Each structure stands twice: as structure tokens, then as C-alpha cells.
Simulated scan of single mutants.
Amino acid sequence: MKEFTATSITFAWEPVELARYYVFKVNGVISNVSTNEITVNNLTPKTKYTASVFAFSGFLNGEKSEVTQKTRMKMPTVGEYRYGETYILLDTDDDPNVMRAPISDVDGNYIATGSVTNGKGKIYVLGNAKIIAGHDYLVTVTDETDPNNKVASMPARITAKIASLSVHDVTVSDKVVSGVTDPNGQVRISQNGTAKTVVTADATTGAFTFTLSSCVVGDVILVETKVGSIYPSSKTVTVRDTSGSITVNNYTLNTSYVTGTYTGDVVNIALEVNSVLATKIKVLSETTYQYYSKGVITSEMDSAYIIAYDSANKQLDKKKITINKA
């Protein structure tokens, strides 16, 4: 036997001088083989197969050789592992003879062994110096049906994933610290070196948000992912003032809307006609706005403006509307 997987075994033997071919038999199937090696595919995992082979010179049969080999188990199903978590968790066959789950680096160097009970496995890796953030590892389980011939499963490759993190700008007007991390992950938020809170992200989207009680332009906000007792990734943002601008399209009398575009932190707009300010409304989309103006702007001589505001209703921009005849 040369090598084997969960569904194949490669058998090899010493070449025989003057052999015309080799007669190979496994699982009741006989094959004439011209070389001293054959791979048998489409086998059943965790199953013993007995194979025999002898050389044939064209006139005489050589001495028969026989070997029994068990195929490996299928690879275990390993859950996503975030660097800093206590255990690597896995699922495998519910078999009382499957009790151990070793982990190694990709070069096969042993790191640790976990336990398996009723098909559920866990490997304790917290604080293990050989587990490095961002590196890949191989996890197997061991079939110990024959204590003298323990057979490792096919390996599952996993990554010690570094918790993901993105953080949005923080402005002095809205005071909101927000961003995205791993679903159901945690982040610690600090302001000017003082820890403020730990927030748990949404279980589906990973979005998180926290409103500071107060802040000023220049405050330093540190957001760190929290996995177990460590903080594997972080982002820093500096509180800034809000800014934004608008454009306004020419308005034709008796049409319904004043329209235009905006950039930056614009959240609300309002129409001002002859120094009378109308109600503030939210912008239409991420880049455009419209404001109902029919019957409000009634003459080419009207003095009309669109005014842009941030989330705290601080004025960011004001543009005059050019009015055309109908």
C-alpha cells in the first residue's frame, strides 16, 4: 500500500523480473496491470479492503501477495475559527471509536489534540503560542477501531481568522460610532484612551453602533474587535466636523419639485422663499434630493434658496434657485 484517502487506495509492490503483467484483485474485481502500481477509486470511507497481486510471466504465476487497508474517514466539518476564541469546534462521525481530534500546521507539525464525543469535537487552543493569527492549520479526527492501527481522517484546512472590522467616520454633530465586524462579534470603543463600552454586533449583518455622550473635533476614537479576552484588530478615527454641499437645478414655474444633488454629510434640506423657511425634509437618496415647490415658488421675482443641513440641523450649504417662466 502506497497511499490512501477516504475514497481511494494506491497499491504498489516491488517489480518482478520477467513479469509480463500483474494480476490484481480487490473487492472481487480482477485487473491485469502492466505496472507495479494501481489506484482504486470510488471506495467507501472508513472501510477495510483486502487486495492481492501476483506476477504472470506469460507461462507461470508468481507468488501471491496480499494486504488489507482501511480507507480514511471523511474530513471533519470544522466551524469558522476566529483567532482568540477558546476552542476550535468540529462535527464528525458519531462513532465511539472516534475520540480524538489532532491539529497540526500545514507542514504536519503537531500542535494539540482535542476530544470528540458523540460526533462533536473541540480543540482547546486559547493561549497556544503555535496558533498564529492569519495562519492555516490542518484538523483531523482519528479512527481508533483498531488500537494498533489508528487511522487519521482526511484533513480539514482552517484559518485562524482575524476578526474583520470597518469603521465609519465620526462627526461632532451626530456623535455616532458605527461600522461592521463579524456577525455577533464584539467591539470595544474608547475615546481619547478611555474605554467607553463593549458593543455586540448584529447577528446577521455584523453592524454595530454606539452614540457618544459628547465629543469635540479632534477626539480620537479607537474601535477594537474583542474575541474572548484579546483584541486582535483595531481601527482609529478622529472626530471631524461635518461638511457638505449641494447643487440646484433650474426651476420652471408650476412644476412640482426643486431638484438637485448633494455631497458629504447632508441629511436634511429645506426650501426658503422670500425669507420664509419651510419644513426640513430628508434627502431623497445617497446623492439626490427633491423638494415640493408648486404653489410655493410663484414668480420669477421670488427670492428662493435650497438649504442643506447635517443630522444635527447645522447648516452646511445654501444655494439660490434660478427660476424660469413656465
Rank of each mutant, 00 (worst) to 15 (best):
G108M: 09
D93H: 09
T140C: 04
K48H: 01
V116D: 12
T140L: 04
G114N: 09
N109H: 14
T92M: 09
D91E: 13
D105G: 11
R82P: 00
A55V: 05
A55H: 01
E63K: 09
P96D: 13
G108S: 10
D105Q: 14
G84C: 08
D94V: 11
K48E: 13
L90Q: 10
R82F: 05
T86W: 09
I103Q: 05
I131A: 00
M73D: 04
I131T: 01
K64S: 11
T50Y: 07
G58C: 01
K74L: 15
H135T: 08
L89Y: 06
T71V: 04
H135V: 05
E85R: 08
D105I: 06
T113S: 09
N128Y: 09
G58R: 04
A133W: 02
L89V: 12
L126R: 12
G79M: 01
K130L: 15
T68V: 10
A133Q: 09
E85Y: 04
S65E: 13
Y110F: 15
E66G: 08
D107K: 15
G114S: 10
I103C: 06
G134T: 12
I103F: 08
V67W: 12
H135S: 13
T50K: 05
I103E: 07
V106W: 02
G121P: 03
I111W: 11
L138H: 01
P96V: 15
E80Y: 00
L90A: 10
K130H: 13
D107N: 14
G119P: 10
Y137T: 09
N118W: 08
D95I: 12
G108Q: 07
T92D: 03
L138S: 03
Q69P: 00
V139G: 04
Y83K: 06
R72P: 02
I88D: 06
K48F: 03
I131C: 05
G62W: 07
S115T: 13
I123H: 08
A112P: 00
V106S: 12
T86A: 15
K48I: 02
K130Q: 14
D93M: 11
N128D: 14
T77E: 10
A55Q: 00
D93Q: 15
I123C: 10
G62S: 11
N61M: 09
S52L: 00
G119I: 11
A101Q: 03
G127F: 04
T68D: 02
A133N: 06
P96R: 12
H135Y: 15
K74H: 06
P102E: 13
K130D: 13
Y87F: 14
G58F: 00
S115P: 01
K130N: 15
G127E: 03
G79S: 07
T47D: 09
Y87A: 07
N97I: 01
T92Y: 07
D93E: 15
Y87Q: 03
N118I: 04
I132K: 12
T117S: 13
L126G: 08
V106P: 04
L90G: 03
G62T: 08
Y137C: 10
A51W: 09
T68G: 05
